[in-house]
Amino acid sequence: MRKKKNSEIGVLSQLVKTPSGLIGTIIIALLLITAIFAPILSPYDFSTQNISERLSGPTSEHHLGTDHLGRDLLSRIIYGTRIALKVAIPAVIISLFIGVLLGLIAGYFGGIIDYIIIIILDTIQSLPSIVLALVMLTLLGPSLTNLIVVMGLTLFPGYSRVVRAQVMSARQELYVDAEKALGAKPLRIIAGHILPNVVPAVIILSTMDLPAVITIEAGLSFLGMGVRPPSPSWGVILNDGFSHFRQSPWPIITAGAALAITTFGFTLFGESLRDILDPKMSGMDS
């Protein structure tokens, strides 16, 4: 199978050969470095206030200016990277887990079970994810953990659909039926034959989902339903900036740029990965 050829290093070296793959990889690498080394990179503590220097533009002391409490924006943006990844990665893992599980069940069993699962997926997707997440967060109360859980629960239908479709096509293939006839247990069939087929698609999907999750997280924080202050989520910085945009545009500009660059980088990376892992899927966006 294809995946055998693509060892991790092989994929990476292929990735950096195309310009978009290279840019995507660089951006993600920078993001990871920023997140890991945030305490070293940021010039100030992200929560130290200095009310007398509030809402200043870029100066030699504060390279990106300060927010409405006089906190250093550069440090807040740097720590914001951590929040973005801290929410996005576990959320994607949760939705991946639930999504793959339901997709496997639906695709493997088919029939009425499949129908019920599809209806559930349709229901979840019939409301925009931001509204659904908002309603659920209202129930649970905003916090980092709840945010992660809610995002996971909101986004899993995408995985289920992809996995289900893959399982269905795999089921068509003769060997699965043959094994069934030989009395193999469903679990073995799934693990042995179906799952490997699904892996590339799921990897691609989850890379592409990361920027979506980051966008929604910042959006929820922008609406005031995200992480607790003084955690410097980019959405929180945007929200604070929105309240003070006449006095200083810098919070909006910096947090907006951070979000734009991050989503851009992840998408480039995800698309290049898709082109390598599964050329069939290219062009099938939207």
């Binding site: 978009s20 945007l238 945009f245 006449r246 989503t263 851009f264």
Partner: peptide, 29 residues
Amino acid sequence: DRILAFLSISFITIPSYVVALIFLLIFSA
């Protein structure tokens, strides 16, 4: 073509509220 390709991806990925806020900054202030 290359520039347009990058532009298209940026258009797709940049969150709508960021664009809205930036436009608000530009057009209202």
